[in-house]
Amino acid sequence: MRIRASSVLNHAFMIAFSFIMIYPVIWWIGASLKKTEELRLPTIWPEVPIWENYTKGWEFSANYTFGHFFANTLLMEVGNVVGGVLTAAVVAFGFARLNFPLRGFWFSLMMLTLMLPGQVTIVPQYILYNTFGFVDSYVPLVLPHFFGGGAFFIFLLVQFIRGIPRDLDEAAKIDGASIYGIFGRIIFPLIKPALVTVGIFTFIWSWDDFFSQMLYLSSVDKFTVGLALRMFIDQFEVQWGQLLAMSLLSIVPSVLIFFFAQKHFVEGIATTGLKG
C-alpha cells in the first residue's frame, strides 16, 4: 500500500512541476487568442477566443505576409540541414576511422574551437563576407554548415562511429571495398540515427540563430521569421496580441520536428557514450 501512495505522490509532483514549467506557454496560447483589453487581465484563457490576432498579424507588414518569411527561413534551413548532416558524417568518418598524420592535433584543435567565443571571429568574418559581396545574402548563414556542420556535431558522430565494431569495416575490406565504399555502404547507413539528431539540432539551432541572421540580412525581402518578429517588436506601438500570435506560430516548425523525432533527442546523445 505504501508503494501506491508514494506513486500517487510522485505523479502529483511531476504533474505540478510540468504544469509550472509549461504554464507560460499555456498563457501564451491563451493570450494569442485574447482581445487587447483582455491581455492585462490575470485570466489564462480569453472569455471569447478570437482569431483576429493571427489573421492580422500574418499580414502585419505592408508588402509581405508571414508566409514569405517562413518560406525564406525554410529555404535557408534546407541548405543548413543538408550541408550539416552530409559534411559532419564525412568529417567524423575521417577522424574516427582513418589514420593520418596530425590526426590527434587536428581533432584537439577542433575540440578547442568549441570553447572559442564567437565574438573573436565575428568581425573578420563579417569583413571577409563583405569583401566578397555576400552580406545581405544567405551565403554567410548557410556556408558554415557545409564545413563539417560544427565541432559539436562532428564530435557527436565520431563518438557514435567509434561504437560501431571495426569487424564490419574489415569484412567489407576483404570483400574489396575501398575506404570510400566502407564509408558510403557500411558506416553512413549505420549512423543514420545519429544523423537524425544532427539534423534536428541543426534545424532548431539555426532557426534560433538570431544573431547571424540579424548581422547578415538587411533587406526585408530576405528576412527570416526571427527578423520579421523583431521588426514587429520595434514598431512604434506594439500590437502585443498579434506579436504573441506570430511568435507562437514561429516556434511551430521546431516543435513539430521535436515531436516527430522526440526519441532521437535523448537516445542520439545517450548512445554516443558521452561520458567525459
Binding site: M21, P24, V25, I204, R230, S247, F258, F265
Partner: peptide, 16 residues
Amino acid sequence: IYFPSLIGGSVAVAAL
C-alpha cells in the same frame, strides 16, 4: 518539461 528549452533563445520567447 523540455518544451520551454525547445523554443530556444528565439525572438519568440523574448516577446513572451
